[in-house]
Design a protein around this nucleic acid. Sequence first.
DNA 1: ATAGAACGGAATATTATGTTCCGTGAGCTA
DNA 2: TAGCTCACGGAACATAATATTCCGTTCTAT
Lengths: 213, 213
Amino acid sequence: METTNAAPMSGRKAQAARNDQTILQAARAVFVADPGAPISAVAERAGVGISALYRRYASKEILLRKLCSDGLKLYIAEAEAALADERDPWTVFADFMRRIVDADTHSLTLSLAGTFTPDEDLFRESAYAEELATRVFERARDAGVLRPGLDVADLSMLFEQIAAIHLGDEERTAQMRHRYLALILDGLRLTSAEALPGPPPTAEEIGRRWIVT
Amino acid sequence: METTNAAPMSGRKAQAARNDQTILQAARAVFVADPGAPISAVAERAGVGISALYRRYASKEILLRKLCSDGLKLYIAEAEAALADERDPWTVFADFMRRIVDADTHSLTLSLAGTFTPDEDLFRESAYAEELATRVFERARDAGVLRPGLDVADLSMLFEQIAAIHLGDEERTAQMRHRYLALILDGLRLTSAEALPGPPPTAEEIGRRWIVT
DNA sequence: ATAGAACGGAATATTATGTTCCGTGAGCTA
DNA sequence: TAGCTCACGGAACATAATATTCCGTTCTAT
């Protein structure tokens, strides 16, 4: 952890600022790999002491909320980008799905749901994210490029399924996720196929999983 | 837990035999819902005391092995049934997938991998299961009803993805799983589509996840 | 030189949980 | 009926994890 050369990274403040990033990245990586991981594992991965963590986040729960919130912000950003995208509807939709898979925003959703008490802000962000996703979805649906009977809530479920894919290192995992996303996208694009069996999930069903019991 | 009527369930031995079943069902349900669940949760769910568990399984790990082994046996049975099925290749293949999803044999694979040391017998059963699955898969592939570029290892990954689906109670979850299995099957059936991107998983990659680190 | 921010990491307090142990009671046997 | 044994319930125990606190140290800016 020695830093003796470059100019902009000297100074205690710069060091601390860099730690802000390092710690968040480490936390993400660790909790995605193991949702029940101890806080000490995060510190170890980040290469810092435990107190560097507690200086920033007063508790584990607060750190988890921060991670979730960041994930939602990413999701929102991608959805906004998709809404601003003027290419053909299917391309925009498929690209949105691919970007979300790469952003891996649902690993946290999948594994951390129910492990901490959601925040008021989280609910707000979540609602906004869902609203944007709905607009992205409906644009594709209204353009007639989707299989009939789909619902925007199906996307959440599909993202979670893909987030459940793990194989080897991060790169290989990403590769596998795109392999099966391609399969799913082909299925979603079958405009003349029959609707999928069973009623789609409701927003209420999906949201209920966040309630801590 | 009172039993005062039917004849065949009286007697200490019959009671114990029924507990054998009850305990296994409870263990499955509990560990599928929460892989890290305490052994006391299993006893509670089964409506028995802890000692009723330890009388049958000397340790938690042995119980987990038993559950996995039972899952593999189920998988093997379904594969054998598929191989004996003389209907058209696609129907046999799709039905096999649907049965495995219903049997939910991969919930344990997904969540318990790496939490206990696999047994010698487990390896044997696993190898045999994989061999049968390969035969089922190749029969469909050779009949030309599958999208090109697929590999039998893709099935494992797909089963795990589907096992990751959870929504509400067991019945609703099953319904959702069939919804997305239908989507996936449609994708697998696109014989004239392009092969999926990225190399398929290898048997070695899939097996490595069982190694306890 | 000195105050104080930022940190490392040992120490602490608490919890969770796998396993053992002991007392109880039902059925079977003589 | 008395005694024996198998199953069992569940408290008690021993341990392992781990969230959080605390204190001494280091480095920077003044």
